[in-house]
């Protein structure tokens, strides 16, 4: 079994700072956009989502619970490297008892979800506006029993 990357929990101020430092890679992270949203709006959104963010090396990963189904979480990563996401999934499975994960990722951005066993289950057309154009969002779903390392 490969060693799991360690996660460092980020408080809200630190989470916002880390997301902003990721630049374009953080656009669309749990639906947030640190380019168009200021710190107070990002903080309000994180609170509204009940999101928790972590750093894993240079990557920020995070989740927001599906309040309608506590065994499901929305997940996001600022990196196409699968290891930080695997560490997050391991955490969610072990400590939050999550059984399914949902990711919504802007189309055209390299991501790690397929590498982590996620399956694409849909496309939200013209869900975002970025760089003077509409952008689709891809919807992925992963299951705890097939997504962990």
């Amino acid at each position: 079994m490969t060693e799991i990357l360690s996660l460092q929990r980020l408080d809200t101020d630190m989470a916002i700072a880390e997301l902003k430092s990721c630049g374009g890679a953080a656009r669309g992270f749990l639906g947030l956009d640190p380019v168009t949203q200021n710190d107070s709006l990002l903080a309000a959104e994180l609170k509204s989502l009940q999101a928790q963010l972590f750093s894993a090396g240079e990557t920020v990963v995070g989740f927001a619970p599906n309040t309608d189904q506590p065994r499901q979480a929305y997940v996001a990563s600022t990196s196409a490297d699968p290891e930080p996401l695997r560490a997050l999934l391991e955490f969610l499975t072990t400590y939050q008892r999550c059984t399914t994960f949902v990711a919504m990722v802007p189309d055209g951005v390299e991501n790690c979800f397929a590498d982590c066993g996620f399956e694409q289950v849909g496309v939200l057309p013209r869900h975002r506006w970025q760089n003077y154009d509409w952008q689709d969002v891809l919807v992925y779903v992963g299951r705890a029993d097939s997504c962990r390392s």
């Binding site: 599906n66 309608d68 189904q69 065994r71 499901q72 059984t99 399914t100 949902v102 289950v121 849909g122 496309v123 939200l124 057309p125 919807v139 779903v141």
Partner: peptide, 11 residues
């Protein structure tokens, strides 16, 4: 239109 199907999304 149906855009995505999410398993086990509510209770």
């Amino acid at each position: 239109q149906r855009e995505a199907v999410l398993p086990e999304a509510t209770w």
